[in-house]
């Protein structure tokens, strides 16, 4: 690994290091560190795994092992500017969630897990967003959209820049 060209900025490194006192082991900082990196880059490229491992005094394989277990982290390319999770679990599915997912696939021309070529939207299905009382529901970045219809989705698609 080249020491001159680091991927993680000093700022990210410092925010990872700031978490060390919260945990008795460095390995416990793996998930928070992955989240911090994912937030900044939109994904966790292999080089970042190596640098996180170095900070946490782990083998890169250990960080990679954890990363690959969780469906949340992407490794090949950054997620879109809006990452959308459409709930397909039982309560949403029973009230039209799957049709909404299909509608989004059709409108965006991508399948769940994919990103539009312009990097605008990444579409995902979610296994229960815990918003069953507002079914069908969808999470777009940090915003929960409730009681969705195709019309509401069409408006939202236009608002994602």
């Amino acid at each position: 690994m080249s020491t001159t060209e680091r991927l993680l900025t000093d700022e990210v490194r410092e925010s990872i290091q700031a978490l060390f006192p919260r945990y008795p082991t460095r390995q416990a900082v793996t998930l928070p560190a992955l989240h911090l990196v994912h937030e900044q880059f939109g994904y966790v490229p292999p080089q970042a795994v190596v640098e996180i491992a170095e900070l946490l005094e782990l083998a890169p394989a250990q960080v990679q092992d954890t990363l690959s277990f969780y469906g949340f982290f992407k490794q090949d390319k950054p997620v879109g500017r809006t990452r959308v999770w459409v709930c397909r679990s039982i309560a949403c599915s029973a009230r039209g969630g799957e049709e909404l997912l299909e509608h989004l696939c059709a409108r965006l021309g991508i399948r769940p897990g994919e990103t539009t070529p312009d990097g605008r939207v990444t579409l995902e299905f979610a296994e229960c967003l815990g918003a069953c009382d507002f079914a069908p529901a969808m999470l777009a970045n940090e915003t929960l959209h409730k009681n969705l219809t195709k019309e509401k989705i069409d408006e939202l698609i236009d608002s994602w820049k």
Partner: peptide, 11 residues
Amino acid sequence: DWPAVRQPVSA
């Protein structure tokens, strides 16, 4: 696990 890809309606 998901519907087949179709062309975007607005394309």
